[in-house]
Design a protein around this nucleic acid. Structure first.
Lengths: 205, 205
DNA sequence: GTCTATATCCAGATAGAC
DNA sequence: GTCTATCTGGATATAGAC
């Protein structure tokens, strides 16, 4: 009995994930307002009406995606901070990993893009705006903290750490944007181009 | 007689510019689809119907803005290339100037953002897409050309020039994005953080 | 759970008076 | 040139059959 309920819930969750995944691509490619609920349904391969068995509204879908994106991103940067490596190595790892994800994962670029759009647009649903207000600062403060530790060490340049952290993330977002425009052609730049902004010496190792 | 016609046309053009200016802010803040024609009319302070005496459709307004943005941007980079300065100085000037514009001019950030959005979104009007297809590569190729000249000189790092040019522009776009989100709080980073990606030596002068 | 059909609403665009 | 009133289409969301 309980088995069946659990199984049903699992299948329901999987279906929801499937919808969210398709919606992510569409929202990233066209924005919230320009994406029709029928587009999402068609993309998933279900009828328009059926979507409403899984989500109350288009806004709810959008908000769920934003929520999930911040959860993952914030978990990742927190894990980065906990690592045993030196601050400088952490920054290097982060840049290398972000560039790799950007190049390899379609979803990753879409996610960054969607969050950027959501942060900008006044048309973003109120609940998503609340999430953004609370969560979007975390990656910046974590990276700034790591950079400051690196400055203590002498391996990170002595510019304002908040400014460096801002440049760190805006550069990644800018690249995500570029990938969104140039699609398949996109090739991530050499990580050393970016690390030069932060490291006191040029070499990677 | 001719006087009056000219005067009328001038007034008409000014009114059009006024509409475009208000529309730019709204499009940048909410995207094309989420911006209502009535929003633009209200912002300008005219009736909805009257807008249609100046533009055929919302898409036409959007396309005009995109056209103007590329004209200005491409004229600017071409002028930059013509300057008598050394490649390295040109890059430095460009970065300093772009950061300054970003910080001081609301319109500049909006324009960059709008073009980025327009480039991404499949919902962008066909005519605007055509402009983007033809014009958007120019700033990249011009900067790449300057960077290559600098590499000959030995003042620019020997990474792939196209990759460097991509990073150049994506960084600027990323910052424009950040300004759009953080609005009034935005403070441009120290130019030397960015020049470090390109210059073989660290110092500015 | 899934579909088709439909009610409802809202935004873009037009018409016509002043 | 400018407004108000209106037509029209299309998208969200719901209802109801299977």
């Amino acid at each position: 009995m309980t088995r069946n309920i659990e199984l049903n819930e699992k299948m329901r969750d999987e279906r929801r994930e499937q919808i969210l995944s398709h919606a992510l691509r569409l929202f990233a490619a066209r924005g919230l307002a320009a994406t029709k609920i029928s587009d999402i349904a068609t993309s998933v391969g279900m009828s328009q009406g059926l979507l409403y068995h899984y989500f109350r509204s288009k806004e709810e879908i959008f908000t769920e995606i934003v929520r999930g994106a911040f959860e993952k991103m914030n978990a990742a940067v927190r894990m980065l901070e906990e690592l045993p490596q030196s601050p400088r190595e952490k920054i290097e790892m982060a840049i290398v990993q972000l560039l790799k994800s950007l190049e390899e994962s379609e979803d990753f670029a879409c996610t960054i893009l969607l969050n950027a759009q959501a942060g900008i647009s006044e048309a973003t649903p109120a609940e998503a705006q609340a999430i953004i207000r609370e969560e979007s600062g975390i990656p910046y403060t974590v990276i700034a903290r790591i950079l400051r530790a690196g400055q203590q060490e002498g391996t990170i340049k002595p510019f304002d750490a908040d400014a460096l952290a801002m440049v760190f993330w805006t550069t990644i977002k800018g690249l995500a944007l570029h990938k969104a425009v140039n699609g398949a052609t996109f090739k991530a730049p050499d990580a050393r181009i970016l690390t030069a902004m932060f490291f006191t010496e040029d070499r990677l190792h």
